[in-house]
Design a protein around this nucleic acid. Structure first.
Lengths: 151, 151
DNA sequence: GGGATTTAGTTAGTACACTAACTAGTATGA
DNA sequence: TCATACTAGTTAGTGTACTAACTAAATCCC
């Protein structure tokens, strides 16, 4: 009987998921580069196209990132010209992030991106939706695990 | 009829995959921290437990990482004491990476990690295998896309 | 045999992504 | 009311992860 190696690299979900994530981000790189965006910056733009003036805290929650990670990232997006950073007038602690006109206009170009990426991946819409749902279940599982004591 | 937003953050596979990857790595953090390892460093150890003296180039290919990324990472593993770095005697360009006794001994402890992570995720072995296979198909798709001209 | 090319690894520069520590507003409650 | 606690964001430090540019060794091949 052949004993399966639990430590074999190719058997690890954690290896597959990190490689797949890096490979996916790499797919976006040539598409986003002409727009002056990195992949995390693109995700910030998606979040802003959904809800326009919003705080850094709100963005951090939506993107599942630490505010400390988002803070310099948003500064770079301001330097590129896609958004403005200003203190909220109602709460001086909060940083209000607002799309500029360039940020709004970028949306028209971005509309074509998901279809281009899907075409490059050559996967059916159904299998992409299934993958996304499976990943979301993994995310929910890790969130549930985070609230319980580690073993 | 409701028009689905192609740019909605929650619809993006690329968002789901990066969040899932970060969440998975976060799951390993408290487990690996006592061993003095980060997640990428753990993957290097897995690769070395499969094939022991091997070159940096061989590791980079196995882990799908750039040699430039691996170079400092392997230096940190040497500083921790899990491996030795020395030039190959047959090819002076190549860097031979060899496990130390501490590196070999670590394997016994690591054997328990996959089961602990799977338990925390609370997913069935079958669904984990299915997820891994789906991710591997994504990786293959991106590799195939990389060899063709970008659109 | 020796110049041109390829390959292995390193270094520099940019950009995440995390934790820990900090500042400064805001809310709470005895 | 006013000390205390909480919340929002920033900064510093460490560790990936990429591209581009570099050095040095090995291989090609005329």
């Amino acid at each position: 009987m052949t004993e399966t190696n639990v430590l074999a690299l190719e058997n690890q979900v954690c290896f597959a998921i990190t490689v797949a994530a890096r490979a996916t981000v790499a797919l976006y790189r040539p598409i986003l580069e002409p727009l002056g965006l990195t992949h995390p910056q693109y995700l910030v733009m998606l979040a802003l196209w959904e809800e326009n003036p919003r705080t850094l805290r709100s963005l951090a929650d939506a993107l599942r990132l630490e505010p400390a990670t988002l803070s310099p990232l948003v500064k770079r997006l301001e330097a590129t010209g896609y958004l403005r950073r200003e203190r909220s007038t109602t709460d001086e602690r909060a940083l209000q992030v607002t799309l500029t006109s360039a940020g709004h206009e970028l949306r028209q170009i971005a509309e074509t991106i998901p279809e281009r990426v899907a075409r490059t991946l050559d996967m059916t819409p159904a299998s992409l939706i299934e993958l996304r749902d499976t990943l979301n279940s993994v995310i929910r599982a890790t969130e549930a695990a985070g609230s319980t004591a580690p073993r």
